[in-house]
Design a protein around this nucleic acid. Structure first.
Lengths: 260, 260
DNA sequence: AGGCGCTTGTGAACGGGTGCACAAATCGCG
DNA sequence: CGCGATTTGTGCACCCGTTCACAAGCGCCT
């Protein structure tokens, strides 16, 4: 309990370095979930294993790609290949969403996209605040992937007065002491933290105070947050260091002539 | 086998979305490792669990921070807090490196830093190539964390002729058709991919051809690579979508009045 | 020198996730 | 209408990782 999850750099498999504090998937508490199904497919909320949740976005991306290239259905094998997992795992993951496949045929792409987007809460475009418009933050503010995949950057903040007022992608950078007002006014629940590590904890506290309950943290530090707040961490240097380990291991096996 | 690892956004505990292809930690093959210990501490290569490897960089960061703030030793409890894990896990992780702690006292920070840096292959600054100097790539090229934590950006590439020749942080952007020559000349084994998804596979192939054996992939797609090549993936939209799921779940529990 | 408190290192139980292998179901064709 | 090919859905066994709980070791104080 009380671990932070690493972010998309991998996490090598779910496996990723952990930070401290916010629990993300740990306390999913034990609902059966399935019997909550109400209508056809649009209003139940199953209890998904955290590992499955982490793979759904990849399935979604692969499905969109298939749909764009003119496909109507896919087999588990085909979708698994496109998403980089094995087919048994994919079938088990999808089975948790309810049944969207037809034996002997495969999965209907379009309703499956709808179901995954519903589960992920992407039916309406979510507002996101971005704090820290430095080197990295500036790039994130202009990243098209955010807007094309279900999100809308609704506010930009920075602590540096010389940056406040700058216009990026049609948005004006505000000072961080306006976080409380703006976040509340726009009902923002997700924030991206791209500040220096030294400022991250303080900014996180302000965001949480203002009502933010999910944080994507790019600062190389551990955030301390209440249990109800989810934190995912992306640390580029950590990803490289993990790769470095494997490089080191490879060369050790060659130079040292170790068995392997 | 043949999964890609997600990167630092975290992987929920190891758990993170998987891509396809490169095995990173799977085929560590079964060396005992320990009996290889030769000198005092500088020349053996233990077989570490992949989950442990993914946490070592976080320990390293925390240790540097402690050292900078004047500490000489830490208890497992103290270091665990600083790294955001629990102390039992930390002790087990460190026990795999050999014994650097003293019962009743704690761990000596300085030698422990040395040992972790050695294991991670950070004793000499590793050269990294960065491909794709667009929005995100440009920011990565200027990211101080790379240089301050064991890496050196040795080359920049882009496919866009109008970008070739541009100077970023003292480095001139080269055209991607120079990848083979430059990567070989500088013996670069790690590359960061910040191209559009449509170009990623082709660029990856060129990099691998030129001798690169580790790739940090920021493009939202699955790379297909030989087994000997390690791939870690960072997808910012996926991280947000995972957070979105938890937001959706939280609000479903409130609005729907579900037990939980 | 001896004992006490503190902290590491680890054996063992536990839990989640993965992958195999097969039964169940659907389609198409003769 | 029935059969065979195909593909989903899942029970089961295995494995990795986590966590607990405690024994072993170290330093300090008397």
């Amino acid at each position: 309990m009380s671990q932070q999850r690493n972010g998309s750099t991998s996490g090598s498999n779910g496996s990723g370095p952990n930070g401290r504090a916010a629990v993300v998937g740990v306390s999913l508490n034990g609902d059966a979930g399935v019997e909550l199904k109400a209508g056809v497919s649009e209003s139940f909320f199953p209890d998904l294993p955290e590992a499955t949740v982490a793979r759904l976005p990849e399935y979604l991306r692969a499905l969109h790609h298939l749909a764009d290239t003119g496909h109507d259905t896919v087999s588990s094998e085909g979708l698994a290949n496109a998403a980089g997992v094995n087919s048994a795992k994919l079938r088990k993951d999808l089975s948790h969403l309810g049944s969207y496949g037809t034996r002997g045929v495969g999965y209907d792409i379009s309703p499956l996209i709808g179901q995954i987007e519903y589960i992920l809460g992407l039916t309406s475009r979510r507002a996101v605040a971005l704090v820290g418009v430095g080197n990295l933050g500036h790039a994130l503010a202009g990243y098209a992937g955010f807007t094309s995949r279900g999100f809308r950057i609704a506010a930009l903040f920075d602590a540096d007065p010389s940056r406040v007022g700058e216009r990026i992608n049609g948005l004006v950078v505000k000072h961080i002491n306006e976080i409380a007002v703006i976040v509340k006014a726009e009902s923002i629940s997700i924030a991206v933290l791209a500040t220096p590590a030294s400022a991250a904890q303080s900014v996180a506290d302000q965001l949480i105070n203002a009502g933010v309950t999910s944080i994507l943290n790019f600062a190389p530090c551990v955030l301390s947050v209440p249990d109800r707040v989810d934190v995912r961490k992306v640390d580029l240097a950590i990803e490289l260091q993990i790769l470095s380990f494997h490089e080191h291991r490879k060369s050790a096996r060659i130079n040292g002539g170790l068995r392997g």
